[in-house]
Design a protein around this nucleic acid. Structure first.
Lengths: 202, 202
DNA sequence: CGAGTGATTGACTTAGATCAATGACCGTGG
DNA sequence: CCACGGTCATTGATCTAAGTCAATCACTCG
């Protein structure tokens, strides 16, 4: 969801740049929300830490992605944002954004549209988690993320990140991918996956 | 997020009821979008069909859920909506909704805020699904759904429904609850659960 | 060079799915 | 009024897929 498509120029002009080292936190759960961010370079992951101390990745944002939009209506951030690589981000201050929405209802509309799309994509994520089998879950992901040709998927980020996004251990993901390759279902060329064969009929 | 809390009365009055038989399509990908819907009874699934003709379920909506909110901002629907069971839905016509938002920017703001909250709550749902252990998942649910006193949870609906919501089989949920009772962690009185003991410190 | 991380594979274990059976409860229609 | 079919709640036995632990290799960066 590139910011350019829904954020008015006036607000973009008010953006503040910030630079992060890999591993550095952009914000933490509970910090008071200054606004929302857009990733310029590098990767930022949104996550929480569960009782067992395991990190739960909610979203892995790459260049162009916006994060923490929902915090505009919340006084604090509701998750951690941590740089997975060295990264640059733009902060769009809350005040400027809300003022723009109040005065320009086209901007507000565009924002709502963007949020509505996000809701859909999150629901899709949840649906994916209802799939029990790792193999089916990976197939579901590949089918949904195939490019325009319906056959190739370009992976952004590491396989470990993808594993977290899919709710699998990285080992399980490696094995599943390897099994799909063995079964002649996909081909892998670096970070590109090509779907070779349709799922066999039931 | 009940529709009542964010949709102006004027729009709700304009709702159109529609009845569907199991298997019937509410809309199809590419149909021009008439508005968004709310499921009253039954289940509606949103899905796409991949190149091979396999259905990919994006979201399975039940009573109370809103679907296709994003289509307010799109000329056509971007997926299929098909009744999994006999179902009743309310259609909120696009024109009425958008008109309300245009004339009443409070309504538009409320809509955006509602979507933003949904985004956060969906992320929390995803977090829950990342909890691997059934016991921890149930604890997480109980902790999040404890009433004002922080100790009692009133279950709405059947345990089977709850199991589905938690992403567990109903057997696993029964067993987990039984184990928590045995462990003295909770008490059950019909559809009410009382938390007896704090989680042990790590 | 050595530390750190990702990718990958092997061996082992276990939690939860699956299959199955039972009892309680409920509405309904003969 | 009761027998019957349906669903929910519950528990037992079994099985398997995925988690966990562990080791190796490749790569990068300071």
């Amino acid at each position: 969801m590139p910011v350019e498509t829904w954020l008015p120029v006036a607000v973009r002009a008010a953006a503040v740049k910030r630079t992060l080292k890999a591993g550095e936190a952009l914000f933490r759960l509970g910090d008071s929300s200054e606004g929302f961010y857009q990733v310029v370079t590098g990767r930022i992951r949104l996550s929480r830490v569960d009782r067992a101390g395991h990190e739960i990745v909610l979203y892995a944002a790459g260049a162009g992605d916006a994060i923490a939009e929902a915090s505009l209506y919340s006084p604090t951030y509701h998750c951690d944002a941590i740089a997975s690589t060295d990264a640059q981000v733009l902060l769009y201050p809350k005040r400027a954004v809300l003022a723009a929405f109040a005065s320009d209802d086209k901007a507000a509309q565009a924002f709502a549209a963007m949020l509505a799309r996000q809701v859909m994509s999150l629901r899709t994520r949840i649906e994916q988690r209802n799939i029990r089998s790792a193999r089916e879950r990976v197939r579901h992901f590949l089918a949904l993320n195939a490019g325009a040709d319906g056959r190739t998927v370009d992976l952004r980020g590491t396989l470990k990140d993808l594993a977290a996004e899919l709710g699998l251990t990285h080992e399980a993901l490696y094995r599943t991918l390897a099994a799909l390759v063995r079964g002649g279902e996909i081909r892998r060329d670096g970070s590109r996956i090509t779907l070779l064969r349709r799922r066999k009929p039931v």
